[in-house]
Design a binder for these strands. Sequence first.
DNA 1: TTGAAAGCGATACCAT
DNA 2: ATGGTATCGCTTTCAA
Lengths: 343, 343
Amino acid sequence: MNPRKTGRHLTQAVTIKDVASHLGVSPSTISRALARPELLNAETRARVLEVVEQLGYQPNLIARNLRLQETRLLFVVVPTLSPFFLEVFRGVERGARESGYAVLMGHTERDAAREHLFLDQVASQRADGAILVTSSDSAALLARSKRMPPVVAALEEVEGLDVPTVRVDHRKAAMDATNHLLALGHRRVAHIAGPDRQTIAAHRREGFQAAMTEAGLDPHAYPTLSGDYAVTLGESAMETLLTCNPPPTAVFAGNDEIAIGAIRTMKRVGLQVGKDISIIGFDDQRIASLYEPPLTTMRVPTEELGYRSILLLVDLLRGKADVPDTVLPTSLVIRGTTGQAPA
Amino acid sequence: MNPRKTGRHLTQAVTIKDVASHLGVSPSTISRALARPELLNAETRARVLEVVEQLGYQPNLIARNLRLQETRLLFVVVPTLSPFFLEVFRGVERGARESGYAVLMGHTERDAAREHLFLDQVASQRADGAILVTSSDSAALLARSKRMPPVVAALEEVEGLDVPTVRVDHRKAAMDATNHLLALGHRRVAHIAGPDRQTIAAHRREGFQAAMTEAGLDPHAYPTLSGDYAVTLGESAMETLLTCNPPPTAVFAGNDEIAIGAIRTMKRVGLQVGKDISIIGFDDQRIASLYEPPLTTMRVPTEELGYRSILLLVDLLRGKADVPDTVLPTSLVIRGTTGQAPA
DNA sequence: TTGAAAGCGATACCAT
DNA sequence: ATGGTATCGCTTTCAA
């Protein structure tokens, strides 16, 4: 409509004193009318509420927080804004709402400095606690050992950080995924892994290798290519794997994005996915069921992970001293990209 | 490692007084050593810094904020955690960092009450301002006309809210999308729209209708099905459209997710997408280029939208009174799902 | 160059 | 049932 808007908001904020003097009562009365109405004469309270409404008084949270020494605010720190971490965030939010906390999210792009920034905000009492949904190799966090604020790690332990953790067993889940391929008769199995220095990726790789070794196969028969969890990695890694002689009949991808990239390459060279070659992903992201063919994958209970984390964190905030770690189960979701090994 | 962790963090925080008395100086000196070192004797400063380090002192931000009357914190409020809004968030973050602000994200699930909650947090000075990436029909926001905190709307005007806005022209972009179909010779064109009461969806629908009318075609030849921006809507709507006689030869989907749903149905019934039938999406989400066939769509500069919003907001915070609205251009991205109308 | 003290805005204890 | 007042932790003016 009008091309320019003005800074109407810049008017001075109404304080509790303003309301009080307006009514000729003390600030205490205003505070009570809002926080503990039962302590007040019903009529006084009504008058206060009216003036509050009329003046548009909003208590200054900063002042209240300072006085109360709590913010009822929690941070969730995720490494990237990928759908995977957002699922976790959803769970966190649900739990937070149930527990009377508000949640705000920050992301770090796997930058340790930015991670610190958020923790500092908590240490500096801008929030009461934080959930760290990190997947970074945050050995750097070790440094700040003193005055660690209430923190819970979701998804995976944070190396060198001794905090309660809600996670899945990535290693075992990776074994399960690999074993699914093995059970279908595959013997030439390759793995495309996530970032080398990332704990989770490392655990998944270990799981793959353990399952292969247990089955009497060489886990290093094919090179384990690795990189960021991205479609492009899957594409290029698969190209490389197809140049091997003989090429693998099955691939265990470090996550769904990598799997989809690999499938794109498979399709491009005319391979029938699920028949000529099998592939299994990891995480069961939303796209997994939507893709064609729908992706067989290892489901990680992301939302639940977030939910349980926040419950732990709230326990911590309530002063519970001993908070147990939690390990949630993963589950194999068989869809269209895995089938019997070709004869 | 150890199954239980303890609440080590519960130790009392170190305050500026602690540091001061530790050194036998006044709190002012500590404050200055940290904030305005040039005012201090170099040697004193060094001593302070050392003790600060040693005690692990972290200034309490709440107290500082109260004193300074600013938080250097901004909120971004998005309706849902969809990839689309996250792109906007990315841009916001980039701009915020450049301007020396931290950003935290909250989402509302299109719940007006939750939207208010965030704005109240700002009004209550928990943050200095907010970006509203809303797409809801938040007429409800009208109510809180007084004491509106510094807010900028991104993506689309918020109805009834007179704040600076950075947006795209959804109506014109929808016309462009429709015209692309028309230019390919299509005459039987249908539209599958987003949520009925959402401003953006309404504008896109208007654009479609305007383009059709301008070309001398009846925009209501096919029912305009609508619903949440979701794959499932696209699937079911497309099923309905295919029962029409004759069915459309082209479809303009309200966003990429709907388009993908529609394509799934098309494929399922054996239609060659881009040949037998054409479809164009909207937004150019990441999946658009990844899908098969790659989706023709209307690109919305999401990241840029966020970036520009924050710059506006910072202007506002710096007291600039007149802040101009900004309209960013969209662009047609032609990929594989649109082709000549069949003879 | 440093210290003392006021004050940011709310809450809660202690009176009355 | 209500008021007065200390207090939360920090910054900054004013004095020395």
